[in-house]
Write a protein that binds this DNA or RNA. Structure first.
Lengths: 338, 338
DNA sequence: TTGAAAGCGTTACCAG
DNA sequence: CTGGTAACGCTTTCAA
């Protein structure tokens, strides 16, 4: 492998000049630049990442900490990851993939050994144990999620509270007065994953504000979990006319169950889902939904990291406005029937 | 951040001694080791990855090239990735995540700039355009898949030919004589993704060997694609009594369609799926299936890379034996009805 | 507009 | 069993 010195020699310039041609950090005459670039091309020179990192204290690598268990929301995780890698490449960075399993130790390992310039973390819990460590790192972090104490940490996510409000207002606007929430699995609540908490809080708040009767239920994975959740909601809230579903995995079994029970969507029961667009449109019934904008969130997280890295100002809390798309899974209840 | 020199000074030894304590590459007296380790702990020393890479020409990083489009098999991709990261960590390596979009250029970028010690590639095509580049890299690669010309390249995968044979033999053994194959999407065949080709080849071969009448059909995503594929199979092969499904996404709509048409599984039609275990067991009917052992394959890929890195012998082609698990979605046809 | 040279923090060889 | 000291390949200040 040729080094910068080989290139310099071939082009008849000093190594520093080659470096400056590469980085553009100082003006180079057109002629010199051409000679250097020719030499680079001819020799097939590629700067050594380690040497660069050592000399410049920049790795051009971002850490992405993803929950790689199988228990949750695989497609959404994947969409985040895709967005992060793509955005990182657009900023000339690569992505080191860590699993959440490694916990605090993993973060500290890659940060302390200077493998990465910044970290992006997903699946943040309300009182995430990694927060203190994150605050101590010399590298900046960007969280996808919003923990309880997020002072001084950059956070990016969908505004799940607002999303819950939007879902409920949509249904209330259609005349629904008894609405059930099918939430994520108890395990997700137990972990106090922040999107679950925030959605629930927004749901209860909007329910109070709008004077709507609601009931809420987490939902175990699998058909039986959905059946149980639905049964409980029906019991707690007789006359239930609409469901908000904040649980991607539950959607399909739910629709199957409703179908099997002869409850038509939307004629007999309305449904609003919170899920990625493609999930909403791949169900037996196209679902009115609030999109989880994984791509936007991932991209924004990377952009925030980049701003942090070059010392630009950032908004520390960026909650994206939810967008509700009507697809006909909600019916209008006539005023006389409300 | 303290450096190795700080540690050396604190422990009253030379930097090389600290290095040797860390690497264990030469004997150190218990006493010295203890002093050094105390100093390391006290100062919170972590070796600088870039400096290490520069001096040792080892990065302890593996590249994982994954197809991050949404068009295929997200959960399986995710399982591979999880397995690779976990196995890599067990060997003290980290994982740099690349997208297949970057193509040959991406591989060359990370390899030439010495960001990684080895590469693991998924979603390999029959005549994968990246192969020539891979052969030229100084870092070894491990493919998850089996391209046409794989001489001298380490390849790891499920033996999809054998899997097709196993599926067909299972059904033939139950007395089925007219069997349809629902394959991956035309796009997958068009790319000549090797698992699709190999499965189809094995299917046709076994069909001939067993003297079974078969028909095969790729399957567009979505309910309509499945409906079309099924209709075509029914037409081409009247009296069809069993289906082999090598298409994870098609499974659910297929079962729905069969149900809607009043064709019971397994009473009226038998089904064998090729998919991850958890997919097979999360369907309305538990499916007899051949597992896609993503975890084993990912782990094996990493282990192969490790062997390659430290110059141990490897088998260049490792095709894992398929395992068929009966779950009752295949019925026995009485000899009189065959 | 360019060059020279001092680091950056390790490793690993050469000595002892 | 331990120390000294060249590399490793690049960036960046200081000078010209």
């Amino acid at each position: 492998m040729p080094t910068i010195n080989d290139v310099a020699r071939a082009a008849g310039v000093s190594p520093s000049t080659v470096s400056y041609v590469l980085s553009g950090r100082r003006p180079i005459s057109a002629e010199t630049r051409a000679r250097v670039q020719a030499a680079i091309a001819e020799l097939g020179f590629h700067p050594h990442a380690g040497a660069r990192a050592l000399a410049s204290s920049k790795t051009n690598v971002l850490a992405l900490v993803a929950p790689l268990r199988v228990d949750v929301n695989v497609p959404v995780i994947m969409q985040f990851a895709t967005a992060v890698v793509t955005a990182a490449r657009a900023h000339n960075h690569d992505v080191l993939l860590l699993t959440k399993d490694e916990g605090t130790a993993g973060l500290e390992r890659v940060a302390h050994s200077t493998m990465v310039d910044a970290l992006i973390l997903m699946d943040i819990e309300r009182d995430d144990v990694r927060l203190p460590a994150i605050r101590r790192l010399k590298q900046p972090s960007v969280l996808i999620g919003l923990p309880a104490d997020h002072a001084g940490i950059a956070c990016v996510d969908l505004d799940f509270e607002a999303a819950a409000g939007a879902a409920l207002r949509h249904l209330a606007g259609h005349g629904h007065r008894r609405i059930g929430l099918i939430g994520p699995s108890p395990a997700v609540y137990r972990r106090q994953t922040t999107y679950a908490d925030r959605f629930l809080a927004g749901f209860l708040q909007a329910s109070a504000d709008l004077g709507i009767r609601t009931a809420t239920h987490p939902c175990e994975p699998g058909v039986e979990g959905v059946r149980a959740a639905l049964a409980d909601l029906d019991t707690e809230l007789p006359g239930l006319s609409a469901l908000v579903v904040h649980n991607e995995e539950a959607l399909r079994p739910l629709l199957d169950l409703l179908h099997a029970a002869g409850r038509r969507v939307p004629e007999d029961i309305s449904v609003v889902a919170i899920c990625p667009r493609d999930v909403a449109t791949s169900m037996p019934v196209d679902l009115t939904s609030i999109d989880i904008p994984a791509h936007e969130v991932g991209t924004l997280a990377v952009e925030t990291a980049m701003r942090l890295l070059d010392g630009r100002r950032v908004e520390f809390t960026r909650l994206l406005e939810p967008g509700l798309v009507e697809r006909g899974s909600c019916r209008e209840i006539a005023p006389s029937h409300r």
